[in-house]
Simulated scan of single mutants.
Amino acid sequence: MTPATLPNNLILDKAQIEQKIKRIAYEIYERNFEEEELVLAGIYPNGNTLAEMLAAQLRAISPLKVQLLKLTLNKTSPLVDPVEIEPQYFSLTDMPVVLTDDVLNTGRTLAYALHTLLQHNPKKIEVATLVDRHHPQFPVAATYTGYSLATTLHEHVVVVLKENEIAAYLQ
């Protein structure tokens, strides 16, 4: 998005998002301090960027070996194309996994991603999201939430996680 196309309703600025990511990283470490290794599986594009940011924080504050996975899926028609996992041949067997996405709205995207991850027999799966909008239609809840925001069904949260801009907007 260019500055001219961004909505005016800023809900989180760069400093606030960075603070929330740091807090989520500490929470992840607190719940997984007995683990040697942890997988952050980010839903492309923004969930993957969030996973990368969380990985950097976790590496700075803990001895955990953090692995990154990128999940790509068709968010509007998730059954049309299979969920792709990169790297493709990474084993999740008996690994703790934190599935990340920028916004949790209905839980639909996360439910399809969870379905794919469960086929790889992880030890456990937790969910981290930057913004939780509270419109559940699928039985998915965030284990870690940066910002909880009650919105109407007609409002949208836009998260921008780019080098030159980090912010979240309500439109």
Rank of each mutant, 00 (worst) to 15 (best):
M1A: 12
T2R: 15
T2M: 12
P3K: 13
T5C: 02
T5D: 12
P7N: 05
N8P: 13
N8R: 14
L12D: 04
L12V: 01
I21E: 06
I21S: 05
K22N: 14
R23W: 09
I24V: 14
A25L: 09
Y26M: 10
E27G: 10
E27L: 13
I28R: 01
E30Q: 13
E30T: 08
R31M: 08
R31S: 11
N32K: 08
F33E: 14
E34W: 05
E35W: 00
E35K: 14
E36D: 13
E36S: 14
L38P: 03
L38T: 02
V39C: 10
L40P: 09
A41M: 00
I43V: 13
N46R: 15
G47Y: 00
E52K: 15
L54R: 05
A55N: 06
R59W: 00
A60N: 10
A60H: 08
I61P: 07
I61R: 06
Q67Y: 13
K70A: 09
K70H: 02
T72D: 03
L73P: 07
N74G: 05
K75N: 05
T76H: 15
S77A: 13
P78M: 00
L79E: 15
E86C: 01
E86A: 14
E86M: 09
P87S: 06
Y89W: 07
S91C: 07
S91P: 05
T93E: 12
D94Y: 02
D94V: 02
M95S: 08
V98D: 10
D101I: 02
D101E: 12
D102C: 05
D102P: 05
D102N: 06
D102T: 07
V103S: 06
L104W: 09
L104D: 08
L104R: 10
N105P: 01
N105A: 12
R108A: 04
R108V: 00
T109W: 01
L110A: 14
Y112F: 15
Y112V: 04
A113R: 04
T116D: 02
L118M: 15
Q119M: 08
P122F: 07
P122Y: 04
K124A: 11
K124Q: 14
I125R: 04
I125H: 01
E126Y: 06
E126A: 12
V127N: 09
V127E: 08
A128K: 11
T129I: 12
V131T: 08
R133I: 09
H134L: 11
H135A: 00
H135Y: 05
P136E: 03
P136I: 07
Q137A: 08
A142I: 01
A142M: 03
T143A: 04
T143P: 10
Y147D: 07
L149G: 08
A150Y: 10
T151D: 02
T152H: 02
T152K: 10
L153K: 13
V157S: 01
V157L: 03
V159H: 07
L161V: 11
K162W: 06
E163K: 14
N164I: 04
N164H: 14
A167D: 01
Y169C: 01
Y169S: 02
Y169M: 01
Y169A: 03
Y169K: 01
L170N: 04
